[in-house]
Design a binder for these strands. Structure first.
Lengths: 223, 223
DNA sequence: TATATATTCAATTGAATGCTTGAATAAGCT
DNA sequence: AGCTTATTCAAGCATTCAATTGAATATATA
């Protein structure tokens, strides 16, 4: 009995975390937080939830130990409570990928519709970027950007795109890229930008392919 | 919008898995299944749930893609759908360990009460085992047992203990051990056996310590 | 001191969850 | 064919959840 109770209590604690992961909106918040500390209203904006609702979900995540918060001035910043949360989220994604048929369907549908976005070949990007006709957008995290990126590219991670639209020239076509041809970040970015009325396409490949092809790159140091 | 919907749908799928992990009883079922394929009634027995309730939880786990089932004769055997489920569960446990104060409290309370179980020193176990006064019980998984175990030990993984009590001599004291001094399997086994009215204590250390101390071991090959 | 801004709290509503109970399948056994 | 065992299905009840709404705290700015 004593062992049984403690064990069950322990599982009940684990279940609190499972419960925190049992809602799509909370998972979306976690994904945004995986890119760094965010305030409540920034999270509400990117997730499309009301402020109050966002706040309440964040509190549930905090009670489950998945996020922490700090108050600075009149706003509260939330962040993931550790890298283990990221890998837990990854584990969730991986299991879903492998064992839920619905996920495979969604992903393939996703990629299909995206092919209608007419990707830009590397040579075309290079020529038009040199001519100043396009904005080259790198949607990877800053660390990866710093390690190397396309010449003249500006770096706005996908999660910050909604907040930093002002940094893009409104009349110039945007060409987005990320890690590789199947990296979803660039798809998302293009879809997002088009929604906002900008002209946007994605690079046919990603940064690694570009580099391997011997095309010019920049890194923070060489700048 | 299109991107937003697909993305949200994708998260909704991930959330299904989170939901499956949001209940203590389901987590307990997963833990048992991590030790191998089990029938519904075996799971109901070890988890203390009603048959119908167990069946329903298992169906939820199956719908979330975490377990699969096969029918053999008149019974249905469930098993985890992959190793990724085990590591997902591990991730859950790890996050809980690190970020939930309640878990730390429970675990320390657990270990405290267990110290009242007066662990058996290695030398005493060796002497009394040779004299045939005690049953030496290894509660680790069969693979680990096969790789090496204490001389004369019998192997009943913790999850099977409830089902295989009959294999233990009812009047002989049982000394249980597992991986190490903080391995909870042996604690659980002792608590469980005492509940069932057997005399039981645990070895002070675990198998690795025993082996390192130069005490005699057996393995399946040398048998 | 008044007035925004950012966040949280509290109350409410409709839907979902966990568990129980009793009936319905379905596969052996005699 | 009957009987037993193992599992699933279906209905019902108390509890919990997600989201909305409007009010309540803080913290800044004028």
């Amino acid at each position: 009995m004593s062992s049984g109770n403690v064990k069950h209590d322990l599982f009940a604690q684990f279940a609190r975390i499972g419960k925190a992961l049992s809602n799509a909106n909370r998972l979306e918040l976690i994904e945004h937080l995986a890119q760094g500390e965010r305030s409540v209203d920034a999270l509400a904006l990117v997730s499309g939830l009301s402020i109050a609702n966002t706040s309440q979900h964040l509190q549930q995540l905090r009670q489950a130990g998945l996020v922490t918060s700090r108050k600075d001035g009149q706003r509260v910043y939330y962040s993931l409570s550790g890298d283990d949360v990221v890998s837990l989220f990854d584990g969730l994604r991986r299991v879903a990928d492998r064992h839920l048929a619905e996920v495979a369907q969604l992903v393939s549908a996703y990629l299909d519709t995206k092919d209608s976005l007419e990707p830009v070949p590397a040579a075309e990007l290079l020529a038009r970027a040199r001519a100043g006709e396009i904005t080259v957008l790198d949607v990877r995290p800053p660390e990866e950007f710093a390690a190397g990126h396309l010449p003249g590219a500006i770096n706005i991670p996908l999660g910050e795109l909604a907040l930093r639209l002002g940094e893009l020239h409104p009349d110039r076509e945007v060409v987005a890229y990320c890690r590789g041809p199947y990296c979803l970040l660039a798809f998302d970015a293009v879809a997002h930008l088009r929604q906002r009325g900008l002209q946007a396409r994605r690079l046919e490949d990603g940064y690694p392919e570009w580099k391997v092809a011997g095309l010019p790159v920049e890194s923070e140091q060489s700048d």
